[in-house]
Design a protein around this nucleic acid. Structure first.
Lengths: 358, 358
DNA sequence: CAGCGGGCTTGACACGTTTTAATTCGGTGA
DNA sequence: TCACCGAATTAAAACGTGTCAAGCCCGCTG
């Protein structure tokens, strides 16, 4: 009874490893490893015996040892700007679906729009020797991505286009989106605007602004008709702050407000309504992302829809392709087009049940 | 420029490990390890030399090797029911704040309310040899937690009370919360109710139901006045489905609806308004969790607030305490009390300023 | 029957870090 | 002068798995 195969009668046989399994099944450790990694190479009866031993001992493979030996783990990192933003949780769903389909696990991480936290968390991913990283970067310089790639970690930029040919990216045309949004507001009759936006280090913000300006130009308006309100984060709380600043600024309120995302817009909406303003009659409003809650807001929010879930899926597919095919991988820059979703918040004139694009 | 310090000009610098650093600094690998883990044990000048070598070579420690040697990593796992639920992302914020404060990284994972995914993801965490796990379990039997604990992985149950004295848990009294919610509806004059809820494997659902029934009893009403609508998931889409089922069921609509969480409630609200019903005049509504979007809904949603962020913080503190103090850790079961938040959706009598849809 | 080849299995080493015991070295008290 | 001390550093032995060359067994062919 004392011969449990470990040869260490004195100590309680703690961690069960590949060796214990091997002893219990009467094979060598190498064979157990083969059962785990290339089952086709091992004869049926042996395989079954080993699998049974695995079950009986409750063996779970030690990922660190695997990773150490292989040089990389079977995990990918996903770094987003804000986990509390439904946009990113939708993306994450797409990522997880594809990854788990292919046998990869996902380490989810959020930079909270902070450069410093981005760096810290990327370092953790690097220490974990993740197989690859999906990154929505805070800054625009791509330095973080470069450092990882130099180290041999494939990176796919997520919701961030890149001009460089040596990396993959998946994004949505935010300039076009901004143009759509402001175009809609102008179509609704607005002549003065406000643009509520987050930190300018976020490409999403600057691109959507660029699109907004383009729409103004197309309508023959100067950029001076658009007041800009910049806040520190792209969430509802900051949206409220922005709206308060707008209201405090004085009576000549803009005809309409374009918010760089829906969270900001929901915050703005809340303060406007509390102030007794009618949306869109007194002031029109449009957001960006078309998160689920926008449709259910106090005034259903017009927005710009992105293929969120697809974004995550495609990015993950590209990343895993890059991981699997060592050299022969052609980098791609994928760009989706956004879609205008008109609800009640953007059009004072057309109060229609059957909204939709003209 | 070709002399990058590695001495291998031809190939892209091989993986730089502790050995390369040691060679570059003219010390032994052991000393480098000491610099990383117990800097106080190494003399000032050597330490500085090593630190410089680390910077020059761009060394990042190989986490798998550390983990392998130590037997466990410096990461904790956080497994929630649904990442798309703002309740859980708030909790996650609390977890991350404490964890990173203590030098731990967090692996975020979601079971999507699926038993199978919970198991699969817990296995991944086990393979990664996480230091401990924060778990909001899908089932009620605690079997998953047991298996981990047997393997020596500390587990703290999150948003899930436990009667067992051998594990920690942090939770909010959902029975009391359910009672508060239905009490509010009854106070508003409702005499017939509907309870919209998710799968009964979720303790949150069954406890809130229990509280609801308790409130009915307290008001001298029988449980037959409360119709139950059970859907497959606790999100807005399922809420919409529930509301449709309620409407299709026929004319004698209940006076009020209690939803097991705010996502369900938002979905319900949307369908009710689309059907031309006035909330709360025609039908009152209350949710649970008090997520941020509830206050901004078409009809501001009454709800039951939980100390979400605190939940994450306390749970993490307990977990890390259990990890650090090997034996001398006293298990605790923490239970918070929820708080009723009354807005417009729950009281037909107390007329709000603005109502329903335009 | 010898030789051969193919399918399975084995054994041993390497991965990068931590840790323990051992070593060096200059200094100090007896 | 010597033994001894403490501080700083080193050498070497793990940790559990994957890999790969080598070995084994068996049936088949010449």
């Amino acid at each position: 009874m004392s011969t449990d195969g470990t040869g260490r009668p004195g100590s309680l046989s703690r961690t069960v490893g590949i060796k214990q399994v091997a002893a219990h099944a009467g094979v060598s450790p190498g064979t157990v490893s083969n059962v785990l990694n290339r089952p086709e190479r091992v004869a049926e009866p042996t395989r079954i015996r080993v699998e049974q031993a695995i079950r009986e001992l409750g063996f779970v493979r030690n990922g660190s040892a695997s990773t150490l030996r292989a040089g990389h783990s079977s995990t990918i990192g996903l770094m987003v700007l804000d986990l509390a933003n439904p946009f990113f949780t939708d993306v994450a769903r797409g990522v997880e679906d594809i990854a788990s389909e292919r046998g990869y696990a996902v380490i989810l991480s959020s930079s909270g729009e902070s450069d410093e936290r981005e760096q810290r968390n990327l370092r953790v991913l690097a220490e974990q020797r993740v197989r690859g990283v999906l990154l929505t970067p805070v800054g625009d310089d791509g330095e973080a991505a470069d450092r990882l790639q130099e180290r041999g970690v494939p990176v796919v930029l997520l919701d961030h286009p890149t001009p460089r040919a040596n990396q993959c990216s998946v994004a949505v045309d935010d300039v076009a989106g901004g143009e759509l949004a402001v175009g809609e507001l102008l179509d609704g009759g607005a002549r003065t605007l406000a643009f509520v936006t987050g930190p300018s280090v976020l490409r999403q913000c600057t691109d959507r602004r660029k699109g907004a300006l383009r729409a103004l130009r197309a309508a023959g308006l100067g950029r001076e008709v658009m007041r800009e309100v910049t806040v520190g984060a792209m969430n509802a709380r900051s949206g409220q702050e922005a709206a308060r600043r707008l209201l405090e600024a004085g009576p000549p309120l803009p005809d309409a407000i374009f918010c760089a995302n829906d969270l900001l817009a929901l915050g703005v909406l809340r303060v406007l309504l509390q102030a007794g303003l009618k949306v869109p009659a007194d002031i029109a409003l449009i957001g960006y992302d078309d998160i689920e809650f926008s449709a259910a807001a106090a005034v259903p929010l017009s927005s710009v829809r992105q293929p969120t879930y697809q974004l995550g899926r495609i990015a993950t597919e590209l990343l895993l392709e890059e991981c699997d095919e060592a050299g022969g991988h052609a980098h791609q820059q994928v760009m989706f087009q956004p879609e205008l979703v008109v609800r009640e918040s953007s059009r004072p004139a057309s109060g229609g049940t059957a909204g939709g694009t003209p």
